[in-house]
Amino acid sequence: NALPQKKTFSVGGVVENKVVSLLLVAEPEGIFAMPDPTVPESDIKALTTLCDLADRELVVNIGWAKHIPGFPSLSLADQMSLLQSGWMEILILRVVFRSLALEDKLVYAEDYIMDEEQSKLAGLLDLNNAILQLVKKYKTMGLEKEEFVVLKAIALANSDSMQIEDSEAVQRLQDVLHGALQDYEATNHPEDPRRAGKLIMTLPLLRQTAARAVQHFCSIKQDGRVPMHKLFLELLEAK
């Protein structure tokens, strides 16, 4: 059950980091939103599509978490606590990474890309603008996939749940992931010794944006006009 040794090795001349490699392999494919073509466009339809997509993404992301080196060694209760705190940050970071190639659009799924007009229609303009602020930050930095996968694992390990039983084990997980990011940057971006720190410094905005998103979807839930699946509801209630 020991955490994997942090080490660097060389594959085909490219220096890689073991933890980063594991996270790259574990990274799930995007899923499709599949909005119902028989239903006319409306705010309710957009929100229903997004909530359904989020529910399915969550299942995928729980499967992903189990592949983070060291995560399965945590107690089941601590695994739950981290996911209950960090799930929305993970969902948002995935949307952000998918959106890096586009201008002012959010790729919720390959078949569900929201521009300003669609955001307005769905009542998500403020939230989507906040997410676009993150996209802009990572675009400026030129966020790489390797950095994205480690940052996402760090966001989960660092989700600051109040219910952690074994905080030393969670700290060890954070240290392994943080070390992996530092090693990656030392090898791949020696010209910018502060790059790992710069990436970590984007996490407060991610936390803040995720909190806004949770708040927004909690009020949508209270309205009761948008159907939501059980896992999504369960995690909204955990907040």
Binding site: P72, K230, L235, A238
Partner: peptide, 20 residues
């Protein structure tokens, strides 16, 4: 934790992580 049945099930149904 009782309230979080689905998350619990999804985590528990895990086989151990695949040997990558």
């Amino acid at each position: 934790k009782e309230k979080h049945k689905i998350l619990h099930q999804l985590l528990q149904n895990s086989t151990s992580p695949v040997d990558l």
